[in-house]
Simulated scan of single mutants.
Amino acid sequence: MPLYDYHCPACGHRFEALVRTGSTPACPQCGSSALERQISAPVPPGQSKSIIASARRQAAREGHLSNFSKAERGKLG
């Protein structure tokens, strides 16, 4: 199910909703189904060195080494 952003012109409420194919969402504030689907701005994944290091440590613990280069995999073990 995709997550969409909606704007309700009837009451001005903005919200996100998980929508199944073929279903019509309703405004949680006023119940109107005449909604405008908004373009969602994608959020890039965290790029700080500490976040990347933490994700790599977790991946190594779980045995997923695809996010390491060949040189880095050689140093692991």
Rank of each mutant, 00 (worst) to 15 (best):
G63F: 02
G77D: 13
E72C: 12
K70V: 12
F15T: 04
L18F: 07
S66C: 14
S32F: 03
Q38M: 09
S32T: 02
Q29E: 12
H64E: 08
L3N: 07
I39E: 11
I51Q: 15
E72V: 07
S50D: 09
A41N: 11
C27M: 05
S32V: 06
A17H: 03
G31P: 02
V19Q: 02
D5E: 09
A10C: 12
Y4M: 05
S23E: 06
S48H: 14
G74C: 01
F68Q: 07
P9T: 07
K49N: 10
E72A: 14
P9G: 07
I52E: 15
A55L: 12
P9H: 07
I39R: 09
A59S: 15
A71Y: 06
P28M: 07
P42Y: 01
R14K: 10
A10N: 14
S54F: 15
I39F: 14
P45M: 10
E72P: 09
H64F: 10
P28S: 00
S32M: 00
T24H: 01
A17P: 02
D5S: 12
A26Y: 02
G74K: 09
N67G: 13
R56M: 15
K70I: 10
A26F: 03
G12Y: 08
S40R: 11
K70G: 08
H7P: 02
A41M: 12
Q29P: 01
H64A: 08
C11T: 10
